[in-house]
């Protein structure tokens, strides 16, 4: 394949054009990341006067801390919940919109709106809806005899952050699924219906396998979202509580570093988190992508 190539006669122009992006990446990503790596090997005294190099002590401490294991488990539950709920709902909505002919564009536009909402705002919104004292949903649930109080129940708190985080991500997943569905030729579905497959069978044997590249891509994106971007939602809804039941890895990084001022441990955790995400992505590319069809 031939690629379009621009040739700059001015030697400095390309560098000038690249500079803004490079500077932003350097200041906001590379520099803090490298600082995190350095400080993960250091310990500060309580007053911040002295830092000592402690090798891997921060890491060993974190890894032997039961609350870290708890956060790891919470993250796994949270990640599974958000990925399953957001992708499941998104796919369902996308299939519905794909079937609607006249108003498909309107639905698409409306369904994308939540994506424009900031995580904290989404958190506050669901915090209000699920507020045990003034919220609408606990009131309705009470009518069914169900007592909702996520300030007390860890399981309900987890459900709350899953719903709040998934809700925001549904829009994003939905857009990709709609695009994915539209790229599956209608004739395939028609051929399958002539071949005697009902609507459900058609979906699971023909359309869903052909969507697998989209599904795979979204899975990676969603796991990254869960790992990093869910902080705002959690902070605004449960603040990691009750009793650390919704403290995920990224939230623990914040709690230990910003609230607890244990920079060393927090940095070690952030480096570990990065490692986990890289590892997961690697695993996915290595094993899941092989099964991705066509």
């Amino acid at each position: 394949m031939q690629t379009k190539r621009s040739i700059f006669t001015n030697r400095w122009l390309p560098y000038v054009l690249l500079a803004p992006q490079l500077i932003i990446t350097l200041i906001f990503f590379i520099w803090p990341a490298s600082q995190a790596v350095t400080s993960s090997f250091e310990r500060q005294d309580p007053f911040g006067f002295r830092t000592t190099f402690v090798w891997f002590e921060n890491y060993t401490r974190v890894l032997s801390d039961p609350s870290y294991a708890n956060a790891l488990w919470n993250t796994a539950v949270f990640a599974f919940g958000v990925v399953a709920v957001s992708m499941g709902f998104a796919l369902l909505l996308a299939v519905c919109v794909d079937r609607a002919i006249r108003t498909a564009r309107l639905y698409t536009t409306l369904l994308v709106w939540p994506y424009a909402v900031a995580p904290v705002v989404a958190g506050v919104l669901w915090w209000f809806l699920f507020n045990p004292t003034i919220g609408l949903l606990p009131y309705i649930l009470e009518g069914f005899g169900y007592d909702w109080n996520h300030r007390v129940s860890g399981g309900q708190a987890m459900a709350l952050i899953v719903i709040a985080s998934a809700w925001k991500q549904i829009s994003y997943n939905f857009l990709f699924f709609v695009a994915g569905l539209q790229s599956v030729p209608a004739s395939l579905s028609e051929a399958a219906s002539i071949d005697g497959a009902g609507p459900f069978k058609r979906f699971w044997t023909i359309i869903f396998p052909l969507l697998s590249p989209t599904t795979f891509f979204l899975m990676i994106i969603n796991i990254n979202y869960v790992m990093f971007e869910s902080f705002g939602t959690i902070d605004a809804t449960t603040s990691g509580g009750p009793g650390q039941s919704t403290t995920t890895l990224v939230y623990k990084v914040y709690v230990d570093g910003v609230a607890g001022l244990n920079i060393g441990s927090s940095s070690a955790q952030s480096v570990l988190l990065m490692g986990i995400v890289i590892f997961l992505t690697f695993i996915q590319f290595r094993y899941v992508e092989r099964r991705v069809n066509y």
């Binding site: 030729p185 004739s187 395939l188 028609e190 051929a191 399958a192 002539i194 023909i206 396998p209 052909l210 697998s212 069809n293 066509y294």
Partner: peptide, 14 residues
């Protein structure tokens, strides 16, 4: 109970 041959073949690619 009919069979159809499509212009773009419509073979299941996977």
């Amino acid at each position: 109970d009919i069979a159809m041959v499509f212009q773009n073949y419509a073979l299941y690619p996977h």
